[in-house]
Simulated scan of single mutants.
Amino acid sequence: MIPFSVLDLAPIPEGASPADALRNTIDLAQHAERWGYHRYWLAEHHNMPGIASAATAVLIGHVAAKTSTIRVGAGGIMLPNHAPLVVAEQFGTLATLHPDRIDLGLGRAPGTDMATARALRRGLDNGDGFPNDVMELIAYLGDPTPGQNVQAIPGTGTYVPIWILGSSLYGAQLAAHLGLPYAFASHFAPPALEQAIAVYRETFRPSRHLESPRFMLALNVFAAETDEEGLFLKTSMQLAFAYLRTGRPGPLPKPVRDIAEHVDPAMITQVDHALACTAAGSPDTVREQLQGFVTRYAPDELIITGQIHDHGARLKSFEIAADVLGTLETP
């Protein structure tokens, strides 16, 4: 069975508050643990009215404290926003409090607009220093070397597992070069997916971190009792993407029965292209669609997300997904 995990952005639904979103995250994490999910990752985004996971390390610590066995981590931390030493201290502390349960996924994008990025960290390098920052962070989490004057405490010797995240060939090449596991953001940026997988697998260099390539595929899932209901739930994410692309970000919209009444057809086409790696519908339909992705891309792990407005429907979707994911055939 392919390990399967949750990617959560702690969505703030229209009509709800950030406090509601964070309570929903804890509830989903506790259910995901019981349903057999392997990891529970949270993503760093800033200045987004519909996302409550900005203080990612803080939220990871809270989720880890409210669960007991599921791995909890970042999917991911946007490293250009932070000094590597600070990230090492944060995740070293998390790993010390929750041994062998913490993951650290690293991204190169700022996860926000440039004005907010400047507010987060001055002297931005547009991600050009990302490889060096990754290596510096790995060093802080490893054993100290002779003459090393700066250490992450806690952090040193924790060897927090690091993943490289990406939606282009850049991350695939870096993960392969460093011998690290790689997760592709196919849930919102699928165009380079096949090429990135090929580059990562063909150029992977074994390391002390990993002997062979380990690739994680990200998918959207909107599962319900019927196809109609699953597609209805999906419209919240379609609307959110459309509003974001037209400069109107906001809380996660309520779903609608006919999205064509709310979004221009050309924009719907763009959004559906971005969300091409999506399974939506009844359990049988979702199973068939997920099996298609697994057969086509042969991932070593799956991570699923689902921006669903109603928390009860969101829980049901992840429950159905867990039942389906446990039955998929591996290539």
Rank of each mutant, 00 (worst) to 15 (best):
230 G>Q: 08
179 G>C: 07
108 R>P: 13
137 L>F: 02
165 L>S: 05
22 L>Y: 06
320 I>L: 11
240 A>Y: 03
32 A>Y: 00
166 G>P: 03
185 A>W: 00
65 A>R: 12
303 I>G: 03
259 I>N: 06
288 E>R: 15
270 Q>L: 14
243 Y>Q: 15
187 H>A: 11
278 T>M: 04
324 V>S: 05
308 I>D: 01
311 H>N: 11
210 L>E: 09
8 D>L: 00
282 S>P: 00
311 H>P: 02
303 I>T: 13
44 E>S: 05
292 G>A: 15
286 V>N: 05
21 A>R: 03
232 F>S: 02
220 N>L: 07
173 Q>D: 14
93 T>H: 09
46 H>E: 02
233 L>S: 06
87 V>Y: 02
128 D>M: 07
281 G>C: 10
326 G>M: 06
49 P>C: 06
41 W>E: 03
209 H>C: 08
193 L>H: 03
100 D>M: 06
236 S>N: 14
297 Y>K: 09
209 H>W: 15
190 P>F: 11
263 V>K: 09
165 L>A: 10
309 H>E: 03
103 D>V: 02
268 I>Y: 02
317 S>R: 04
234 K>F: 13
98 H>I: 01
213 P>I: 04
78 M>G: 01
54 A>Y: 01
74 A>D: 03
71 R>H: 14
46 H>Y: 11
303 I>Y: 01
2 I>S: 01
107 G>V: 03
18 P>C: 07
121 R>A: 11
259 I>G: 11
114 M>D: 14
187 H>S: 11
219 L>T: 08
93 T>S: 13
322 A>N: 09
31 H>Q: 12
107 G>Y: 01
149 N>D: 11
159 Y>Q: 13
147 G>E: 07
7 L>G: 08
273 H>K: 13
71 R>A: 06
107 G>P: 01
74 A>W: 01
72 V>M: 05
109 A>N: 11
81 N>C: 07
84 P>D: 06
250 G>N: 10
3 P>N: 12
193 L>R: 09
268 I>G: 08
79 L>Q: 07
268 I>T: 07
125 D>I: 01
43 A>C: 11
231 L>H: 15
180 L>C: 11
42 L>H: 04
180 L>T: 04
145 T>P: 00
4 F>Y: 14
329 E>M: 10
37 Y>D: 04
140 Y>M: 07
239 L>V: 06
243 Y>V: 00
239 L>K: 13
6 V>M: 05
295 T>H: 15
174 L>G: 12
116 T>P: 12
278 T>A: 09
107 G>F: 01
17 S>L: 07
175 A>S: 09
173 Q>I: 00
194 E>D: 13
126 N>V: 02
223 A>W: 05
208 R>F: 07
74 A>R: 09
160 V>N: 09
87 V>E: 02
57 A>S: 15
122 R>S: 13
235 T>I: 00
321 A>R: 02
232 F>R: 15
